[in-house]
Design a protein around this nucleic acid. Structure first.
Lengths: 161, 161
DNA sequence: TATTGTTATACTCTATAACTATA
DNA sequence: TATAGTTATAGAGTATAACAATA
């Protein structure tokens, strides 16, 4: 559980511009969600794996590494962990015995479901200040930026360059 | 320069809700800014220190640690670095010789100025998809969330819990 | 030879605790 | 005894490179 040195805005605005607010709120949202899923015994790194395996069962560790932009050795360690927790299962492929086919266990499926519930609660928590119209407007504006900045829809690079 | 495992949204929305978009864009904005200031020889951790010392010259390392929510030993290391770079100067306090008074050097002031210019360019980059009215609207909505979530104006906790 | 996955290693970041000096 | 700051140490997270099995 590390802390990180805080950043501070310029002196001109008392709250900073949009870029600063995005960084501040993005960190806050990510930290709060990490807390929530921590209660499920999961770390932020596990989220992407679990979701991708749930969405695309049978995919290989290599495919996972490529999709997530992570090095294969890292996937080994993360899958090891989820395997030990009984959430993910490695099945040696019969077609090409070099690679595994990754599947959620029953328990893994349940945990993924709980993770999604937590995600919905999290969304409500973060947006508590906004009414439905404001929420939609915010999502619209953020979507414009995501698109223009060329970010992959639905994937984010984590919190290091 | 690490990477971090990506997260992925739920399958319901192709882009995720506001909380996910905030985390995604926040990480993106922070990473892009880190790249920019990297060209100045600074790391993200240096930003807050430099800004605070520029805003409140003469403050102690202890005060800095408190404001930024960081442990004193960490401030020692960070100030060491900025000191070696010739950006910050430690002056032993004459009133209480246990503590230092931190000041920017001339070069430190220049670097802080350049950092602010980069911040403005960064703001324009991140908001390139939006016109002036949309930008204002976004800042307004984000401000509402910041306030309701009880975040300190102008400070963010970095990217670890 | 090329590819999947693993292991061994090293590096970065950060916190904790013990320590020095000043008060 | 209490406080400012430093040093030494340890742990988490992640990348790189060498390696084994399979193709």
């Amino acid at each position: 559980m590390g802390g990180t040195v805080a950043l501070v805005t310029t002196s001109r605005n008392h709250r900073g511009g949009a870029a600063f607010l995005l960084a501040q709120l993005g960190a806050h949202a990510a930290n709060r969600f990490a807390e929530r899923i921590g209660e499920l015994g999961l770390s932020p790194s596990d989220i992407g794996l679990l979701r991708m395996i749930g969405t695309d069962p049978g995919l290989s560790q290599r495919a996972l590494a490529d999709h997530l932009g992570v090095v294969p050795s890292r996937v080994t360690a993360l899958v090891d962990q989820l395997d030990r927790q009984g959430l993910v299962e490695r099945r040696r492929s019969t077609e090409d015995r070099r690679n595994y086919e990754l599947h959620l266990t029953e328990e893994g499926g349940r945990v993924l479901g709980r993770m999604r519930s937590l995600g919905a609660a999290h969304e409500d928590d973060i947006c508590a200040a906004l009414d439905a119209e404001q929420r939609a407007r915010l999502i619209e504006l953020l979507g414009l930026i995501v698109e223009q900045q060329g970010l992959t829809a639905g994937v984010h690079p984590g919190y290091r360059s």
